[in-house]
Design a protein around this nucleic acid. Structure first.
Lengths: 241, 241
DNA sequence: CGAAATCTGATTGTCTGACATATTGATAGA
DNA sequence: TCTATCAATATGTCAGACAATCAGATTTCG
């Protein structure tokens, strides 16, 4: 019920104070904070403690620190905040399934929203990722960049920063897996085909079709994943014989 | 394309090294790290730099630091990681709308999944939040706790850690707004009624009905919000006269 | 007068060494 | 066996110092 007061670290108290001031609007976007020495005097603590606090705030995407320029409050950018989360773990397969499901659910909805809200600029950006992917096919690279960008553009087209941020974060977390999938024979070509169809659905504002296409898009990937994991098992079994 | 090498801070390099070792599986859950002095010797840097790195890792939910016990790798807990994100900003109304939309989209899907996957334990937990809310009505408190818990239990019932984590994070971010809404005359009683209906739908595994009820649940809140903002405007206009 | 080179000051990045404090585990006593 | 005291350990915090570097002022030269 009550939190331990005395044991709270100085650096944590500083973090809290600064965050409170931001919420209260007393510190505003892009504002420059006093330098470390001055802060330490104002707070009445050592510079080391101030630094620890600032490191935390930086890792959270709240402030930005420039080498010899000082500390600034970040412009509010959800993407930055969300990208501050990473998943520094060996993602086990269960976690992968969860991630995958979450992404599928969100992105299908994203597609529907994009159909309603995408403007010409969004469509242009998406179109560009299609040509990018074609170039990847021609050049023979993984095409992951175009893939990620396509989905991000679609998410941006929802005009919902939160959703775009979450989708982006999930998408990049699964980057390694997506690279594997795209490397599956013939997948990249098929993927481009699917992206194109989704793009057209959004252009035509056909949200039902778009949702269906996305479902197919994801189930295609799921199939490849099972194929890949079976292959893997097969190989390892063969290796044991 | 390439990242600046030389300018990377020592503390950031330490963070990266530790995270890499976690991903590679060389550091495992709950493992205790060497103490700060030892770490500083192993890395060949000062203790201050090690501390800065550890503070960052702690704020990310990667490690846990006990006052005089040492530093331990956290058991992987997505909720902890996600709860490490906070939104220390004055949420403007636009951001609120985005949050609200994101939550609605996710939670409707959550309800559908919960219908398929909720077990007896999940149902029991949800039922408990219903009685909690009844008690809040009787006692006359805000009922926010029961409200948040209900939605969290539903999210947990999806058995998808990622989704549960996201829903939780969104839900708590909007806590203040939810308190306001629940304070609207008659809302808490109505809210409990809606929760009960949703609970029953999940119990009966009727996902279509559940989705519909959730849509209603959210649209009811939306209505109150407009009512509240109109009221607010009306008052301020009156005050100007 | 304008542009390039230089210099200087401000600020972060890092280190060293020290002390305070609290928790843990061991040891001694009832 | 349980309790109480004590010492060792690790974190929390501080002070002070120096290096590195970037930005802006200053100077110099065309």
């Amino acid at each position: 019920m009550f939190q331990n007061i005395k044991s709270m670290r100085v650096s944590d108290q500083i973090v809290n104070q600064i965050q409170s001031q931001i919420v209260e609007g007393r510190l505003t976007e892009r504002q420059k904070l006093p330098n470390e020495t001055e802060l330490s005097q104002q707070f009445g603590v050592s510079r080391a403690s101030v630094r620890e606090a600032l490191m935390i705030l930086e890792s959270k995407g709240v402030v930005e620190r420039r080498k010899n320029g000082g500390t600034f409050l970040c412009k509010y950018c959800l993407e930055k905040i969300l990208s501050a989360i990473d998943f520094p773990r060996k993602l086990d397969s269960e976690m992968f399934d969860d991630l995958y499901e979450a992404r599928e659910i969100l992105e299908i909805k994203v597609g529907e929203l994009a159909c309603q809200r995408a403007d010409v600029l969004d469509l242009m950006k998406m179109e560009k990722t299609l040509t990018m992917m074609q170039e990847s096919i021609d050049r023979g690279d993984s095409g992951i960049k175009a893939d990620i960008l396509f989905h991000q553009c679609m998410a941006m087209a929802t005009k919902n920063q939160i959703i775009a941020g979450i989708v982006r974060s999930l998408g990049t977390t699964m980057k390694d897996m997506r690279i594997q999938t795209l490397a599956y024979p013939g997948r990249l070509v098929q993927c481009l085909k699917e992206h194109r169809a989704i793009y057209n659905a959004i252009k035509e504002k056909d949200s039902r079709k778009c949702a269906e296409l996305l479902r197919q898009h994801f189930s295609a990937v799921a199939q490849i994943r099972t194929a890949l994991s079976n292959e893997g098992n097969g190989r390892s079994r063969a290796a044991n014989e």
